[in-house]
Write a protein that binds this DNA or RNA. Sequence first.
DNA 1: CACATGACTGGAT
DNA 2: AATCCAGCCATGT
Length: 107
Amino acid sequence: MAETSFFEKVYNVTKQIPYGRVTSYGAIAKYLGAAKSARMVGWALNSSVKHEVPAHRVVNRNGLLTGKHHFGGTNLMQQLLESEGVEVVNSKVQDFKKYFWDPVKEL
DNA sequence: CACATGACTGGAT
DNA sequence: AATCCAGCCATGT
């Protein structure tokens, strides 16, 4: 991958998230070699909608859908996850550790 | 150019 | 166990 820019990697990894699985910003950031720049991952996902990236599968390390407000300001993000078989309650993923998908470990 | 904000995280109190 | 603080990088005012 020559054109593997920070953003490109984020989109690439996020798009590879298996169905019914979720990951965290820190995991992606760490995979990119910038574990301390987790904020950048969120910023990159800010443009993810243009890349057709399922950002709804990306949540913070607590399993909380912090970015749901960027999905239309509704419970769309939660509905999407529930639709994939992920238990989500009050904008929070249940058994997050069970649904957690680590790119560093899986890739 | 400087300050403030933000889809975060980890450690300290 | 819960809350606060500091670090990181990019974008906006």
